[in-house]
């Protein structure tokens, strides 16, 4: 056990799985970097340095830089997965799904069903998401609800370094296509992360705070804010349960429903756009299955229905934060 950043945790998960299974390969734009240049090899290790060092250990045959051609290489990852490799493809920013989505939702997601259960497509698509990086509208979206919408895909959203390593190893060993969402504002967050490989099962929510007055469900980076809010509320003698679903597909509704049955109050914190989001999804399920336990209307804490802005002043206003979660909590407790 030692302290590792979210970035290190992912790098370690990749390295350990590549050592364990020769079929695991990493591919994507600049996952090593420097190919075909007069300068350094492994120049980048991805724009955030997450895959740095892998090419040194595993070579260019297993750490494949690609041209900037998302349809081509995401499709290749899918095809490789269907024929015996276990590729981890790096879709640099999830916003780029716009230029490769067919290969994900019409191909990877559908093979098993269309082919009568005979296809296995163990591809992992790692992708960065989320606002806060002053990266504006085309590099800051969440978009995980869109992937969650598609049957045949699994969607993991780790909320800290420990979760990142365990969920990524699970994703790589999983026989279904997994979209693995990494919040770009979490890469430097540090947590206790075991040195050994471990897996966190999909579809099992993590209860990060246990309380009786209110349930908060949060995703990705929002789990951090929800925990902060819960700790502050605890000082005001408000006892809060915080649930991190970890994966939105499969989704552990049971843990949420059980908690709401106890607390009767629910706040959902989702950094994705507010329409057809995980917030609306969770709210709908709770209303359908636990309506009689609700003591107050459900509150959704989300950004407004606008693209992610560039200017720091606007972006900070856009992103849900601890204060907003606390305000929502107080309003459902009022």
């Amino acid at each position: 056990m030692s302290k590792k950043s979210f970035r290190q945790a992912i790098n370690e998960a990749l390295a350990q799985e590549m050592r364990r299974d020769h079929r695991v390969i990493v591919m994507g734009e600049d996952v090593a970097g420097g190919l075909g240049t007069p300068g350094d090899q492994d120049a980048w290790g991805g724009p955030m340095g997450v895959t740095k060092g892998l090419v040194g250990e595993f070579g260019r045959e297993r750490v494949l830089d690609t041209p900037i051609t998302e349809s081509g290489f995401i499709g290749a990852a899918v095809g490789a997965a269907a024929t015996g490799l276990r590729p981890v493809a790096d879709l640099m920013f999830v916003d780029f799904m716009g230029v490769c989505f067919d290969q994900i939702f019409n191909q990877a997601a559908k093979f098993r069903y269309m082919f009568g259960g005979k296809a296995v497509t163990p591809v992992v698509i790692r992708t960065m998401f989320g606002a806060g990086f002053r990266a504006a509208s085309q590099h800051s979206q969440c978009l995980y609800p869109i992937f969650t919408h598609i049957p045949g895909l699994k969607v993991a959203i780790p909320s800290n370094a420990y979760e990142a390593k365990g969920l990524l190893i699970q994703a790589i060993r999983d026989d279904d296509p997994v979209i693995f969402f990494e919040h770009k504002m979490l890469y430097d967050d540090i947590d206790e992360v075991p040195d050994e490989p471990y897996t966190i099962p999909f579809g099992e929510a993590n209860v990060t705070r246990e309380g009786t007055d209110l349930t908060i469900v949060a995703f990705g980076r929002m789990v951090k804010f929800a925990n902060e809010a819960a700790d502050l509320l605890a000082k005001q003698k408000i006892s809060v349960t915080v649930i991190d679903p970890r994966t939105t597909s499969p989704m552990d509704y049971d843990t949420i429903l059980e908690s709401v049955e106890e607390t009767g109050r629910l706040v959902v914190v989702d950094e994705a756009h507010p329409r057809c989001s995980m917030a609306t999804d969770v709210a709908a399920f709770v209303v359908q299955d636990a309506f009689k336990h609700l003591k107050a209307p459900i509150k959704m804490v989300t950004p407004p229905h606008v693209p992610v802005p560039f200017s720091p002043a606007l972006e900070d206003e856009y992103i849900p934060n601890t204060a907003r979660i606390m305000a929502a909590a107080r309003s459902v407790l009022a």
Binding site: R23, I25, E61, R62, L64, S71, G72, F73, I74, G75, A76, A77, V78, G79, A80, A81, A82, T83, G84, L85, P87, D102, Q103, N106, Q107
Partner: peptide, 18 residues
Amino acid sequence: IVGGGPPLICGAALTAKT
């Protein structure tokens, strides 16, 4: 999907090569 196959086949070829 018209044009769906060529990227997949690059992947199949990558498997064969790897």
